[in-house]
Design a protein around this nucleic acid. Structure first.
Lengths: 381, 381
DNA sequence: CTGAAAGCGCTAACAT
DNA sequence: ATGTTAGCGCTTTCAG
């Protein structure tokens, strides 16, 4: 039997009874719609207050069709760039009255499919997805999504016509190469991490996600345009940021004609390079130059501080939310994909070879000469 | 008018009609309860498949009362320790069939209250809260929560009897001091960040969250027990990890009788110390020793690598989820609070003063002698 | 084993 | 300006 009065979870009926009006009027008063006499309104509001009424948004959502909830499906929570993205998505969404349901897929397609399903079942109003792979994504297609709005974040999927918000990773990689080249580096290596790989290899794996693909392409394109031949020994791909990454870095450094500079495909790869450098006593910015992707708070406390290609990940996340909410507001309005520029933060991890042309290349030893200082503009802390 | 057949969002009625059975039977077949003839079951399942039926969990939740959703309210998304916690909560929850609704309060009590309200409205089954403050938390009390299960994470609130999962921060701080003391340090400073403060000060602010409070207490307790007097100049509190943190560190180093070692209250404070050290050309582990709270991937690539008090934050998060789900399963079973031990990861950022008693204290200069090596057991990478 | 019918809490036509 | 009523999609007695 339905009780009134001191219910644990008073419903709108309880409030109505307490205020002595109908449920409809109560609803109107509480949800600010239609017309209600201001006296009755206050009476209702007071009753709600007194009873400690908390609306059941589920019930409301069932009628309205909207849950004011966004689904965020992230391929790799823990990667600092996605932690930032998550924060920014939550913040932007919250500012516009949306809550965020978050899941992590660990770069796993099955988990991604499951997440999407659960979110659809939960009736989220839209989905922001950092996709785990470029293949087998038919379940991200319009039909399977039942017309639910989606935006891809950080990674695009060319085949499906889904709007995405990405960074200009190709340009970012090119900027990095250009920078190193301008400081006299001609032998420049590339170290890449990609989840769709076991161990490590020199061969470019198939099915790289767009972000990585674009960085690799940018590297090769800029090297080619600069007239710098790429020695295959300089480029290595690894499946995780742990041991295989270290192996890959060591392999590059141990090649017959090692590069003088390295481009690292993300923050974890930069750390891998720094680890190997440390284990070998190599001084970054002197024995080995380095540019990484993704800025981080620790990049500036290193000595020398780390030059990075920074993604505007917060803006990207915000753009994704805005795009998604626009789609929710007007499902017919086709949304365009957006590519935001990266920014090269020039610090001190690239040695200026033009200042001392005849220098010796080192991949193991570590003599005790002081670090040369950089001559460079556009410097950030 | 209700349409059948090629609906965009087929409901259980559509499936029922398609299968030629009643909604009740359809529901039984789809949700695996009651008894259904296995033939009819397969018929129903096939119909559901064909129509692309996706259950509306909202409707189910309305009847069942459970949403299989947990609310996670974090005080400061972006602090790496909470990013880890978030990841771990999402993972543990997901493993047990729960989704997670995440909000960020930015250490703001109003935002926390709003978040709690929204989550209650959304009918989450339980709440994991990293509370923003120790005061004005009556809205986290049992009555206001309408009996909804809650677990506090990382920070406890002594006044309210809410179960919490915290680390033994007091012991952690004591371990750090003990370690520094064992290596001959007697003048040890403390640098603390706390959101409830503008600028920076030497006075201990009121209303420190339990985590910070315990670290400060541990510091003082261990200093006292070790017979080490604490010079007030050595302890400073700042309101953020930016400029005020740098100011605080500088103030400590510029005091008449500066400490030889510093304990930093979290990862950001470690970074602040490293920044000031860098700006002054001080070599950590020689000119200034440092122990921080919270481990991080970059702690080991620094030279010297950073000794830290590491929190078992993933286990804490997992414990919080388990505790919460236990409460959900049996609301009457009172849940106990848990305190997990911290772990001192001894690396190389604390100079061994016992190896060279007469050394000069430096707070500005930076001569070019090589870093002394550490004599120490229990070393981690 | 299956169906009819009621109802979770709320809102929105449609009356009055 | 307010009340009556129907129904969102689902589950679950209660009958048959």
């Amino acid at each position: 039997m339905k009780q009134s009065g001191n219910e644990a979870h008073p419903t709108i009926s309880d409030v109505a009874r307490h205020a002595g009006v109908s449920r409809a009027t109560t609803s109107r008063a509480l949800s600010n719609y239609g017309v209600v006499n201001s006296e009755t309104r206050t009476k209702v509001l007071r009753s709600a207050e007194e009873l400690g009424y908390v609306p059941n948004v589920l019930a409301r959502s069932m009628r309205a069709g909207s849950t004011q909830t966004l689904g965020l499906i992230i391929a790799e929570v823990g990667l600092s760039v996605f932690d930032l993205a998550m924060r920014s998505v939550i913040e932007s969404a919250s500012l516009q009255g949306y809550q965020v349901l978050v899941t992590n897929t660990n770069e796993d397609l099955i988990a991604e499919r499951a997440s999407i399903r659960v979110m659809l079942e939960k009736q989220v109003d839209g989905l922001i997805v950092v996709p785990s792979a470029v293949v087998d994504l038919e379940f991200l297609s319009r039909s399977d999504l039942k017309g639910k709005p989606v935006v891809l974040l950080d990674r695009s999927l060319v085949t499906l016509g889904i709007p995405s918000v990405t960074a200009d990773n190709n340009r970012g990689a090119r900027d990095a190469i250009e920078h190193m080249h301008s400081l006299g580096h001609t032998k420049i290596g590339l170290i890449v991490v990609t989840a769709n790989l076991e161990g490590e290899t020199g061969e470019r794996p198939r099915g790289l996600i767009s972000t990585i693909h674009d960085r690799v392409e940018g590297y090769h394109a800029e090297m080619a345009e600069s007239g710098l031949p790429v020695n295959p020994d300089w480029v290595r791909y690894c499946g995780d940021a742990g041991e295989s990454a270290l192996t890959a870095v060591r392999a590059i450094l141990d090649s017959p004609e090692p590069p003088t500079a390295l481009l690292a495909s993300n923050g974890n790869m930069s750390l891998a390079v720094l680890r190997v450098a440390k284990e070998r006593g190599l001084v970054i910015g002197r024995d080995l130059s380095l540019v990484g992707f993704d800025d981080a708070p620790w990049a500036t406390v290193l000595t020398p501080s780390l030059t990075v290609v920074d993604l505007p990940i917060e803006e990207m996340a915000k753009a994704a939310v805005d795009n998604l909410i626009a789609q929710i507001a007007d499902p017919s309005a086709e949304q365009a994909s957006v590519t935001l520029p990266t920014r090269l933060l020039v610090r001190h991890s690239v040695d200026d070879l033009t200042a001392h042309p005849g220098a010796v290349i080192r991949t193991h030893a570590a003599p005790a000469t002081p670090l040369r200082t950089q001559k460079r503009a556009l410097t950030s802390p």
